[in-house]
Write a protein that binds this DNA or RNA. Structure first.
Lengths: 131, 131
DNA sequence: CGATTATAGATGCATCTGCATCTATAACGG
DNA sequence: CCGTTATAGATGCAGATGCATCTATAATCG
């Protein structure tokens, strides 16, 4: 818990210092940017990111207002929506990645060698397994 | 990040299911319960827990209102306060620990053997070191 | 001393999160 | 079909968090 808080906090500070939005925004932008057509249903984003439904709904409000995504109707199911990444959203994803990658390097890469990083990833993968 | 979110979320759910307050409360109660006299200055709690100052200040409001801690004047320095754990606070700390310990066992202990747990702790300690 | 600066803690305000619930639509079962 | 139940997503409200700033007191330095 302590390590996560410290590392995440340090990364978020780096983002903030570069006037970029928090990591949650990046997670959404990344998922959208790497699927065909740049569009996903909200529940798909939810599954991929571990954001809670109500939380994602309002994050999308903010990202929509910021012009990074747009909501469109999903005609096959009247309940559903498409969330589509905009050009500006793709640009933002790239800008964040520049800073994010450097932050990962600084706060993780500089502290662990490759073997340790692999080991850590493996142990955390074990913890992430459903129970 | 994912592992932390999953494991912490699962532990918090266990606490909530037992009608207990979130882990932040436990952190404060634990620190207070294990010092002589059961009292610390707010800034000391802050250092030990990584809670932000303004955040801790209001957490203490809530814990005070719940009768788990009391604030007392600190006569050596007019700016300072004592935070003192109450009997009820000690009882709560113990009640939380029962549930918390079981949750740690379920969500960590059952997934990692001792060697893996040690390895993980060691890697995370490396990450926690100041830059 | 007295003015400046630093520290301890509290607080107003905006944002974010969780929780429950709501609306709208779809699926299902008799 | 129609009533019940399930699913997608939004929203009102309370509680939590971050940020900046405020008050009060201490320490420092000319």
């Amino acid at each position: 818990m302590r390590a996560q808080q410290l590392v995440l906090g340090a990364i978020e500070l780096d983002l903030k210092a570069a006037d970029l939005p928090p990591l949650g925004w990046y997670d959404v932008l990344l998922e959208l940017s790497r699927v065909e057509g740049g569009r996903l249903r909200p529940y798909e984003i939810e599954e991929r990111t571990l954001l809670a439904q109500h939380n994602l709904s309002r994050l999308l409000d903010r990202m929509d207002k910021a012009g990074l995504v747009q909501r469109e109707v999903f005609s096959q199911d009247g309940r559903g929506r498409w969330v589509v990444i905009t050009e500006s959203g793709r640009a933002m994803q790239a800008r964040i990645w520049n800073v994010y990658a450097a932050a990962i390097q600084r706060h993780l890469g500089n502290k662990l060698n490759n073997g340790q990083a692999d080991q850590l990833a493996e142990l955390l993968a074990v913890l992430s397994q459903k129970s």
